[in-house]
Write a protein that binds this DNA or RNA. Structure first.
Lengths: 153, 153
DNA sequence: GCTGAAAGTAGTTCGAC
DNA sequence: GTCGAACTACTTTCAGC
C-alpha cells in the first residue's frame, strides 16, 4: 500500500475514536457511500494500519482500581539478561505496558491491580523473583488526567 | 447491575482481546446461543463495564515512531495550579496518557510523535509554556516489550 | 475510484420454556 | 436466563460509469 490519502486518514480518525460504527455511518460522516468505505477499511486492516479492534473496559467497575508505575534498572546489561527480562515480564499478566527505555532507568512498567496489598504481593512474589534487577522504584496513580489509545494524526 | 458472573467475565475477556467478533462467534466460544450473549453484551455496555470500542492503529505505519515518557513536577502544589495543569495537558493532542502521581514526581506523561525534532519542538513550544513546571525529565522508548489495553480479569 | 442495487449474513426482537 | 425462529439491518459483491 502506497500512501494514505486524506479519506483514509479520516476513516482512521473515526475508527480509533469509536470502532463500532456501521460502514454506512462512517460513509455518511465523510460524504461517501458504503462500498468505497468498506473497501478502504478492509485495505487499512490488511495492510496493518489497523492492528486490531478492542473493547476498553472500566478499570474501577471490574475491580482493578490501582495503577502503579514501576521503574526498573538492571544490574547487568548483557543481551542475554535483557532478553530474559523481556520474556519474564511478558509472562506477568498484571503488566499492561512495559518499555525498554533510553535514560537513567532501563524499563518502565505499568501495572494494574485490585489493591495495594496485591501490589505488595506482586512485587514480593513476582517482580523481585526476576533476577538481575538492580533498582526498583514504584509510583502510584492518584488520578488519570488523560488516557487514550488514539494517536494524533 | 449487581455482580458479574463467570459468563460475563468470559465475554469481557473475549471482547477486550478482539471486539470485532460477531455475536454468534462469541456465543460459540462460550457454548451459548446468540440471544443471551447479545443481551449480556448490551447490559455490559449500558452499565459501563465496556466503556467503548476502538481501533488500535500501528504507530510506525502511520508515521509516529517516537514515544517519550516525561516526568513532570510542579513548583507549587495548590489546587488551582494542579487543575490548571490538568486542563492545559488535556489540550495537547500529542499526550496520549497523563497521570497525577503519588511519589517524588507529580505527573507522568506519555507522548507520541513523528520524530525527535518534533519532541524538541513539543517541549520548547508547548510543554515549557505551561507555567509552574519545576522539574521535567524525558525518557525515550527504545523498544516496546508489551503494550496492551487488556486487564487481567 | 465511486455509485447504487442485489445477495448474503449478522444483529436484534420476541414468544415459549 | 436461555432457546430458536422471524424480522430488520448491515455487510459484501458487482455491473455500470
Amino acid at each position: 500500500m502506497e500512501k494514505l490519502d486524506e479519506i483514509d486518514l479520516k476513516i482512521l480518525r473515526i475508527l480509533q475514536k469509536k470502532s463500532n460504527r456501521t460502514t454506512k455511518e462512517v460513509a455518511k460522516l465523510i460524504n461517501l457511500t458504503a462500498s468505497p468505505v468498506y473497501e478502504r477499511i478492509k485495505r487499512l486492516e490488511e495492510c496493518g494500519y489497523i492492528k486490531k479492534y478492542v473493547a476498553i473496559l472500566d478499570k474501577k467497575l471490574i475491580n482493578i482500581p490501582i495503577t502503579a508505575i514501576c521503574m526498573v534498572s538492571l544490574r547487568y546489561h548483557d543481551e542475554g539478561f535483557i532478553d530474559k527480562f523481556d520474556k519474564q515480564i511478558k509472562a506477568l499478566q498484571e503488566v499492561q505496558e512495559c518499555y525498554h527505555m533510553a535514560g537513567k532507568v532501563d524499563f518502565f512498567l505499568k501495572i494494574n491491580l485490585e489493591s495495594l496489598d496485591k501490589y505488595h504481593e506482586f512485587v514480593r512474589l513476582k517482580l523481585s523473583k526476576i533476577e538481575n534487577i538492580g533498582v526498583l522504584e514504584s509510583y502510584f496513580v492518584l488520578k488519570e488526567i488523560t488516557s487514550t489509545t488514539e494517536y494524533y494524526i
